[in-house]
Design a protein around this nucleic acid. Structure first.
Lengths: 205, 205
DNA sequence: TAGATTGTTAATCGATTAACAATC
DNA sequence: TAGATTGTTAATCGATTAACAATC
């Protein structure tokens, strides 16, 4: 298949496949099937096969998919067969949890620098990282060639911080503030807002 | 329109509309339009109008939507015109950030009880809340009639904790552990995994 | 009234699923 | 070989968008 544009919704499922494969690998399995993955993730087996076929033929008829091989391929496709340095802005409760979060390990990301605008926090350490002033975002981020950032500041500061990050050359932003952010179209943004998920579920209660 | 089943994907957008309306209200606006909301959220105005029409006619031709009124209606639809007590399991970094998170306020949720299995943590306080033993989940959750829980424990403990929560009568779970969880079909589950969003974006880097 | 924006339908678009030949 | 599961196409399904009459 030639490199036609692959639907974004397909790309969005690949991290789930990767996470499932990691689980299966931990369980000691060597091989899996589209049916098993689908069962585990609540996705149809046909969809999983079709999604994977956008990128190549990774399976073997009658056998299924070699877990280690497929995992490696997905890591290459998602570009997480390397470790990306990430800039974090905001060293409050959420920022602290992010720095100490174990879930980034081995999944392609490393918090490389932390910024905050609170003079009482600047110069303090979280987990080996010295908190820098937000005044230094532009210099540091461009010097370190960081392309990914997380925003963990209060909602009313989020847009200002985002503007600075974009100026500094950031291309992907994970936003923890419960507010929408405006960014140039070349910049990708994803939101983490627990309340969105909760409110989605309360509808059904 | 009769109460046909409304697509889940529509329900999933309502919290975003609610968040946008809150923003507009803070900005001091009284009225908005499907076009303005769409611009702000990156969603087409036609889709917003159609989504809202599943629930009633909330706008006025030529004028748009009264922000305060539409917000109130969406809160009722999503059942967040009340405050839900939420049980949190896990008092580590993520758990602490959740308890101290300001974003729940006024959006329908309140952390009412915290559990952990670490003897060193049990009896300690986070933000007025005494950490209870996970042994007490069943008793406490059912006595307090709590229906929503958050799981913020390490991946390898998440399924066990989830099973206990389900036994205790929990109907909606927000899972912060980077792993899939199996629950009975009557129980709703949503995942918060920052790496999924990050890996989605690195594909495009 | 003129201008604006909703409510609403029809058309389009794209994603999911069903089905099965190929093949391990 | 028989059984299993992928790769792949065609059919179905559902969601999004375009368009405009209704109406404020």
């Amino acid at each position: 298949m030639p490199a036609t544009t692959i639907p974004d919704i397909v790309i969005g499922r690949l991290p789930l496949y990767l996470r499932a494969l990691t689980q299966f690998e931990i369980s000691g399995n060597k091989v899996t099937s589209s049916h098993e993955m689908g069962e585990y993730l609540g996705i149809s087996s046909a969809q999983i096969r079709k999604d994977l076929l956008h990128f190549g033929e990774f399976g073997k008829q009658g056998t299924g998919y070699n877990i280690r091989y497929l995992k490696k391929q997905l890591e290459i496709i998602l570009r997480v067969n390397q470790e990306w340095d990430v800039a974090l802005v905001g060293a409050g409760g959420v920022g602290n949890a992010i720095v100490n979060y174990a879930g980034f390990r081995g999944r392609g990301f490393r918090i490389a620098v932390v910024f905050d605008n609170d003079p009482a926090k600047i110069g303090q350490k979280i987990n080996e990282l010295i908190i820098l002033s937000t005044d230094q975002i532009k210099i540091k981020v461009s010097k370190m060639k960081i392309r990914i950032a997380m925003v963990a500041v209060p909602s009313d500061e989020a847009q200002t911080v985002t503007n600075t990050l974009v100026e500094a050359g950031i291309e992907s932003i994970l936003n923890y503030a419960p507010t929408s952010l405006t960014v140039p179209s070349k910049v990708r943004i994803q939101h983490i807002d627990p309340v969105v998920g909760l409110q989605h579920m309360t509808y059904y209660l």
